[in-house]
């Protein structure tokens, strides 16, 4: 359903390409992990898919196809139809990713306002339904809150709700749990698993932590300095890493699991 072919991204103010020839596919209902240390180009990859790169400041080449539709070379106006409707994005810092002056419920329903003909009441009903689905309890109450009145974990649930409210085909998750503490992190991962199982949404899950990826994704790609150095089933990559960089990433995980493999 998503196919990236030989993607290159070069910022004008950088010598090196941020993304230097990546090819990756995500199948229907699949969750693919993308790991790599900070600065390796994971976010830039995700932003190219979501069309959020500043086009005037970089050169893009290659192809990104979503259900056969070209995302990279389409005009902005056509892309806006795809953003939000077919692709939902969840960012790392839920607090800064939300408009501080807009009620959480309105932000969750914003995609519906832009892409559907639903009236206010219908939108509200749908928003409450989705809030329930992402385990936000008391959705009525949460609807009327402003972002600063919610915890990081609740906000990230709301961000996820906003991203899936219109049932997009693909969810891009750019380090969605990095800013959260460990218990909340685990809950969010459970939630994503549930959404994937129940609604069949495909996901690209980005993290610098291979251990987190392992809990969620069956397939993982390892990124270093703008290229994919390794790709395969998560278990295979985790227990039998081929590339020295992957080995280093695994060794860097400060958990029991990491040591078991040594």
């Amino acid at each position: 359903m998503l196919e990236i072919r030989d993607l290159h991204v070069k910022f004008h103010n950088r010598d090196r390409e941020a993304v230097a020839g990546i090819s990756l596919t995500i199948g229907d209902g699949e969750i693919v992990g993308l790991v790599g240390e900070s600065g390796s180009g994971k976010s830039v990859t995700a932003m190219s898919i979501a069309g959020l790169l500043p086009r005037k400041q970089c050169d893009l080449s290659g192809d990104i196809l979503l259900d056969g539709e070209d995302l990279l070379h389409a005009p902005r106006s056509a892309l806006r139809q795809i953003h939000g409707r077919k692709i939902g994005v969840v960012f790392q810092e839920p607090m800064s990713a939300m408009d501080p002056l807009m009620k959480v419920g309105e932000q969750v329903g914003e995609v519906l306002r832009i892409h559907t003909d639903l009236d206010k009441n219908q939108r509200r009903a749908r928003v409450l339904e989705v809030m329930e689905a992402v385990d936000l309890h008391n959705p009525e109450e949460v609807y009327n809150k402003y972002p600063h009145e919610l915890s990081g974990g609740m906000l990230q649930r709301a961000m996820i709700a906003a991203a899936i409210v219109i049932q997009p085909a693909l969810l891009l998750l750019d380090e969605p749990t990095t800013a959260l503490d460990v218990t909340i992190q685990a809950q969010i991962l459970e939630l994503l698993k549930k959404l994937n199982a129940e609604q069949g949404i495909s996901m690209l899950f980005i993290s610098h932590n291979l251990n987190v990826v392992r809990k969620l994704c069956r397939r993982v790609a390892v990124m270093q300095r703008g290229v994919l150095v390794e790709e395969g089933s998560t278990d295979r990559v985790f227990f039998d890493p081929q590339h020295p960089y992957t080995k280093r990433l695994i060794d860097a995980i400060p958990t029991r699991h990491g040591k078991e493999t040594v």
């Binding site: 959020l52 806006r80 953003h83 994005v89 960012f91 990713a97 408009d99």
Partner: peptide, 12 residues
């Protein structure tokens, strides 16, 4: 960052 979110939802 919230502007990027708004664009990602399809706001012009």
């Amino acid at each position: 960052a919230y502007v990027r979110t708004a664009i990602s939802r399809g706001n012009d």
